[in-house]
Amino acid sequence: MAVFTEVSPAQAQALLDHLQLGTLSSLRGIGAGIENTNYFVDCTRGDGHLHRYVLTLFERLTAEQLPFYLRLMQHLAQRGVPVPEPHADATGEILFEVAGKPAAIVDRLHGGHQLAPDAFHCQQVGATLARMHLAGRDFGMHQPNLRGLAWWREVVPQILPFLEADQAGLLKSELTYQEQLAASAEFAQLQQHHSGPIHADLFRDNVMFEPGEGPGRERLTGFFDFYFAGCDTWLFDLAVCLNDWCIDLTTGVLIEERAAVFVSSYESVRPLSGAEHRLLPALLRAAALRFWVSRLYDLHLPREASLLKPHDPRHFERVLRERIAKPWHALHDGAKA
């Protein structure tokens, strides 16, 4: 969510007019993130109230790829999952062009991030993630996870020259491990029976909470930033969350009590199969590898942007080393039958 493409007030107002959303009162670039150009857009209407949106210009995704993300958000929102719904024009179109780039405008969620979550936050995210997975089962479009195994194979050779010998060795050995996992019969069953649209990037800063009843009892208001979404195993999505919501950010160590609550809450909506329980340690490694690779790529092969804050890849190197050294099972007394 960096600002790669400048948007003028006149350009923003033209889209607001087309969608009949009101008169622009504020346009502010969002500096967090590294993939798309995002702006907070505030406007007023005849009712006198302030209406708040997010305008996204897509820098890498093509006009052919984008309908998957936007229609998925629309699909989930219409099934009661708390996600920003894209605004459509009179013809039902939700993808537009601003400053020469594909663009969309969605509702801005209420509240703020919880960057120091506890078990109560994990409980809400886990249950909502499972609801999202179930709601997406009848989504009619398909697109692979574009940051999955095929992408790792493509970019790892490009980033290896930047790494120290021990890092390069770890990266190559883990890629081999994940290739062997992907070729296994049990993983094929996971893909066939326990997969669908996933968020694939549901970190702490992609979930919003607002104050609830009592101190520390914040209420989840929604998931956003679906522009890494794709079709993959639901377990991979769960692993991505566990590697962010349930760890010590300094060391990468998994906080088991928090992780257990997250998984238990998820399973209260969609129970995991025996295969999913058995493969969870391997998918935790896959999720760590995915973000280590992408952060290395963004650090060493960056793009220009007026606001750009690349993330430190060493964080997910630590997470990966932890998941290899200390495999974690949601069930410590053995996997389900």
Results as ranks from 00 to 15, higher is better:
44 T>S: 02
51 H>T: 08
83 V>L: 02
99 A>H: 04
70 L>G: 12
36 N>T: 02
56 T>G: 08
84 P>S: 02
43 C>K: 04
26 S>I: 02
43 C>D: 01
35 E>R: 11
56 T>R: 12
89 D>A: 14
83 V>S: 01
85 E>L: 14
17 D>H: 05
56 T>V: 12
98 V>C: 00
95 L>S: 05
96 F>D: 07
83 V>T: 13
90 A>Y: 10
105 I>S: 12
27 L>V: 12
20 Q>K: 11
26 S>A: 15
27 L>N: 06
59 E>W: 09
104 A>H: 00
91 T>F: 02
102 P>R: 05
84 P>L: 10
25 S>F: 05
84 P>N: 00
21 L>C: 05
32 A>M: 14
36 N>Q: 03
21 L>Y: 10
87 H>I: 02
21 L>M: 15
22 G>V: 02
96 F>Q: 11
79 R>W: 06
62 T>P: 03
54 V>N: 06
20 Q>S: 15
63 A>E: 15
61 L>W: 09
72 L>A: 08
67 P>C: 06
87 H>E: 03
27 L>W: 04
53 Y>V: 01
30 I>F: 09
70 L>D: 04
100 G>D: 02
36 N>K: 04
79 R>L: 07
77 A>L: 05
56 T>W: 00
51 H>S: 10
86 P>I: 04
89 D>R: 09
80 G>P: 09
84 P>T: 01
99 A>C: 08
32 A>S: 15
96 F>N: 02
86 P>H: 06
90 A>L: 13
31 G>C: 11
28 R>M: 14
65 Q>T: 08
59 E>G: 06
78 Q>D: 14
99 A>W: 07
86 P>W: 04
43 C>Y: 07
39 Y>S: 12
101 K>Q: 15
37 T>C: 10
40 F>E: 14
34 I>T: 05
100 G>Y: 04
26 S>L: 01
60 R>M: 06
105 I>H: 03
40 F>L: 13
21 L>A: 09
93 E>W: 02
78 Q>L: 15
24 L>R: 01
31 G>N: 05
56 T>Y: 09
68 F>P: 07
25 S>H: 10
85 E>Y: 05
46 G>A: 15
98 V>G: 02
